[in-house]
């Protein structure tokens, strides 16, 4: 290796590909379009919203969300059922995802850490929630799938409010 900045080998999944996927996912969530969102995931994918800020093993600690495919499907069913008063109607949300950093990449995978700023509106009130979001994307067939999404809220270890939508 020569002097100077060491450049990683170009990832097989480009940042542009990853960003487009992430923005499409964010758009689905803001529109509460949850069935297409379920289809974005790999079969073994995990959707995690931790409480602790440095958990080595999410399965061993309490989280806000620790969903496998079954729990994701159950969660979506609940949110669109019309019988959950915190999500019927849910708060309106608008989220921006940016500050992408590729933290790991392999032949058919890429891990991206990003910043998410979300504003929600309900009952004449707006709330802001910021989070670091880490996405692990994998190539399956012609497209990308979401294999892990970890939403670390800026105040994950402090009090939240009831949240009737998906982060």
């Amino acid at each position: 290796m020569s002097d100077g900045i060491a450049l990683a080998a170009p990832p097989c999944i480009t940042l542009q590909d990853a960003a487009e996927f992430i923005w499409r996912e964010a758009d689905l969530l803001d529109r509460h379009d949850y069935y297409p969102w379920l289809a974005l995931w790999t079969e073994g994918g995990r959707y995690v919203i931790p409480i602790e800020r440095d958990a080595a093993d999410y399965a061993a600690v309490l989280n806000v969300v620790y969903d496998d495919a079954g729990m994701r499907a159950a969660r979506v069913k609940r949110l669109i059922s019309g019988f959950s008063m915190s999500s019927a109607p849910a708060a309106r949300t608008i989220r921006t995802v940016s500050r992408f950093v590729v933290t790991d990449s392999g032949t058919d995978t890429v891990t991206v850490r990003a910043a998410q700023n979300l504003t929600e509106y309900k009952y004449g009130r707006t709330r802001v929630m910021a989070a670091d979001v880490t996405y692990r994307l994998v190539r399956q067939g012609d497209g990308l799938k979401l294999d892990q999404k970890v939403v670390q809220l800026i105040n994950s270890d402090d009090a939240q409010h009831g949240i009737g939508y998906l982060l």
Binding site: V65, A74, S84, S86, G162, I163
Partner: peptide, 18 residues
């Protein structure tokens, strides 16, 4: 606990809304 409780549980947010 995660299933029912907390800000995104299947129970607590509806309690809080109520």
């Amino acid at each position: 606990h995660e299933h029912f409780q907390g800000p995104m549980g299947f129970g607590s947010p509806d309690d809080a809304e109520g």
